[in-house]
């Protein structure tokens, strides 16, 4: 039996019908047309589908769409404010922290969740926080630098 689900995605109310086996990722991509969250594995091992639910970073492939009822979901599509990029998005471009770009939305969502909870992480903290986001192109070097640099810029902005 399909479930009627009402939730908030990137601040906007949404409604959709969910098959009981449908994941949140399927709902975002197929029902809501938000294809920025990617499926790389479907088993929670790659992080390409990372979203934030009620402030908690999760893999949207490991959550049923029906579980989203009444919850607040943030995806990559809500990260920039209009056409103004989030500092992380700018720093990823500036540092060339993406090559194919497929893992990038998940990395950005995860990195934002990190900086929101820990504005001044060490390199080791960044690496462990992002261990669930596989990137096969970059070797992570420039990704880590971009996150550290975005953190520094956001701390500066907070002081100023």
């Amino acid at each position: 039996m399909k479930q009627h689900v009402t939730a908030t995605v990137n601040g906007d109310p949404v409604e959709f019908l969910s098959d009981p086996g449908m994941t949140l990722l399927d709902a975002l991509r197929d029902e809501l047309g938000l294809t920025g969250s990617k499926e790389g594995c479907g088993s929670g091992d790659c992080g390409a589908c990372s979203v934030v639910v009620d402030g908690r970073l999760v893999c949207s492939c490991l959550m049923l769409a029906a579980e989203a009822e009444g919850h607040r979901i943030e995806t990559i599509e809500g990260m920039a404010e209009g056409s103004v990029l989030h500092p992380l998005q700018r720093k990823f471009i500036e540092h060339a922290a993406l090559q194919c770009g497929f893992c990038t939305p998940g990395l950005l969502v995860a990195a934002k969740a990190l900086l929101d909870s820990n504005p001044d992480p060490s390199e080791t903290e960044v690496r462990y926080w992002l261990a669930g986001n596989l990137c096969r192109c970059t070797g992570y070097d420039k990704v880590i630098r971009a996150v550290m640099d975005a953190g520094a810029e956001m701390r500066q902005a907070r002081v100023a």
Binding site: R29, G36, K38, G101
Partner: peptide, 15 residues
């Protein structure tokens, strides 16, 4: 293609 890729707008095979 950077902005498309950091905003989730880039269209991959399954998109």
């Amino acid at each position: 293609d950077g902005v498309d890729k950091v905003t989730g707008r880039a269209t991959y095979g399954a998109d």
